[in-house]
């Protein structure tokens, strides 16, 4: 048996970047809930139709909240836990095919 598990101190607050905004969150919280709590409703734009989208299920099923996190695309904001100073961006267009390419024409 392991020693008794206790949860004494209150959770800390952390902050991260969303585009140009600074977002406050609870340690242990997900990116999506922190964004929603800060009033961010739109987390992406569909490249083909130009329609805005936001988180829907918050349990990792719908994949509506895909964002770029620290340079890695297609991360579910509702599954990713916030880290201090993490950089989150909206996905608004098709990604370049290589690092040097210009973004493809839509």
């Amino acid at each position: 048996m392991r020693p008794p598990h206790d949860l004494p101190e209150p959770p800390h607050q952390v902050s991260f970047r969303f585009g140009d905004e600074e977002i406050e969150a609870w340690e242990g919280e997900t990116v999506a809930t922190a964004l929603l709590a800060s009033g961010v409703m739109i987390t992406g734009v569909r490249a083909m139709s130009g329609r805005s989208r936001g988180p829907y299920c918050l349990i990792g099923v719908c994949h509506e909240c895909l964002v770029e996190i620290d340079g890695l695309a297609n991360q579910r904001a509702c599954i990713t836990t916030v880290r201090q100073n993490m950089k989150v961006c909206r996905q608004t267009r098709l990604r370049p095919l290589t690092g040097e390419d210009e973004t493809r024409e839509q």
Binding site: R51, C57, L58
Partner: peptide
């Protein structure tokens, strides 16, 4: 139902549980 601002009720609950804030 695809518009931002539409979520499942469970999502609103999850948000309340995690952030402590209700949907705005």
């Amino acid at each position: 139902w695809h518009l931002p601002g539409v979520m499942s009720a469970g999502a609103a609950q999850t948000m309340l549980k995690m952030s402590g804030h209700p949907v705005k």
